[in-house]
Amino acid sequence: MTDDLVVKANLAHQRAMAMTRLLDCGMDYADASRLHARASEGEPWDVIAEAIAAERLAQADRAEAEGRVVTAAEARRRGIAALVFAQMAFNFDEPRKVELYRKLIAACGRLGPVFDLPFERVETEFSEKRLIGWLVRPASLAARGTVILFGGQSGWGAAYLPLARELARRGLATILAEGPGQGETRIEQGLYLQEGIEAAFGRWVDFIVADPSLGTPGIWGNSYGGLWAARTASSDSRIGACCINGSFARPAILPFRTAFEQSAAMIGSEDRAVIEAVMAKLRFDPTQQRIACPLLILHGGADPLVTLEDQQPFLDAATGEAVLHVWPDGEHTIYNHSFERTALVADWFAARLGPAA
């Protein structure tokens, strides 16, 4: 890639991965600042983020070898966050993205022994392949409920580890789910976004109800993931509460190169007609699909992608409790009010997914 192309790519990365998003997903402020500063100087985004991750993971290894497990866990979490954003520089599953995602998976695998919460990789069968996720339990192991938590076109799995920690502090477990078209489920299993996505997330509901220690299932979808959460909640009465954070009820290809590429990668086709056909089948229609469980909708007034009108069909579908919370200056999925957002949602789930275990 030429210097001009690197600069152009980095400007796009800085818009898509703003400081607020980096911090929300667990990067250290100093690391996030270095990433943006060095990207502004023309270094490739993925190379910088990978180097930052390597430093943090090496720090974790030294601390673990010396018995300093708290420091080891904190450094490893920051290294994981840096790898989340290193791989995000690529939309398609080219060799470099696959390499970085495998490093991310390996780093997550080494977090468990030093983490202050039970943390393990989990799988469940779907369409003759495997859905991949990470299960985070509260320190007590038994949970009052378990939230299936996921993102949309680019934020997956371990990106939501900071949110899972806050849920655990309230006695809730979390499955950091990677659905069809996302993360390891896509890269290693070859499962792509398709009509009937709710059946895939329903398999995580099966996983939860099969284990009494996981309590009542809840579901929390961010960005496009909110649409899939809504579809799942409307089709599965076992779900005890649903949160939708900044999503489209009627998905479409957004008018940006990155958005098209991410949609193409999720669906497994660069044919615009194919992508549009899949998205048409994923639309949420409140006249046909109803949500009976408690529903929480989050919206950012400064979201450049999703309008409140885009989310109105979810509210129209509610047959019971429905709450809309708006941050007038909120960015997409409320990166810039991460503490307030996460506290609000975690408390809300804790109040609705059953008594303390």
Rank of each mutant, 00 (worst) to 15 (best):
R165L: 12
S154N: 15
N245A: 15
L254F: 14
S223M: 08
D236S: 05
A230I: 02
S247P: 01
A159G: 08
S154F: 03
L172V: 08
F201M: 12
A177R: 09
E178K: 02
Q189R: 12
R231F: 01
Q189T: 09
D236Y: 11
A173C: 13
L193K: 07
L167Y: 07
F248S: 03
F201C: 01
R250E: 14
W204I: 06
G202C: 12
R250M: 09
I219N: 10
G202Y: 05
G151M: 12
C242G: 08
F248R: 07
G155R: 10
C243Q: 03
G171N: 02
L254D: 07
C243Y: 02
R169T: 09
P251A: 04
E195Y: 11
S234M: 11
G183H: 13
G221A: 14
G215E: 08
A233T: 03
G151K: 09
A158G: 09
R203H: 04
G190K: 10
F256P: 00
L172F: 07
R238C: 13
G218E: 01
S234Y: 10
P217V: 12
G268T: 04
R169F: 07
P180F: 02
G171W: 01
D206M: 13
R250P: 00
G190A: 13
F150P: 00
R203W: 05
R169M: 07
G151D: 10
P217K: 09
R165M: 13
R250F: 07
G151A: 14
A164P: 07
P251F: 01
R238E: 10
F201S: 14
L176A: 03
A173D: 11
A168T: 06
L149A: 08
W204P: 11
F256Y: 14
I219G: 09
A259M: 09
A158P: 09
I267T: 02
F260M: 05
T216V: 15
A159P: 04
G196Q: 04
W220I: 00
G179H: 00
P180R: 07
G157M: 09
S234E: 13
W204C: 08
L161D: 02
S154C: 05
G152K: 00
E184W: 13
V205P: 11
Y224A: 07
S263E: 12
M266Y: 05
G152F: 01
A199K: 13
Q194Y: 00
L176F: 09
P217Y: 08
S235R: 15
I208R: 00
E198T: 00
P162K: 06
L161A: 07
T174S: 15
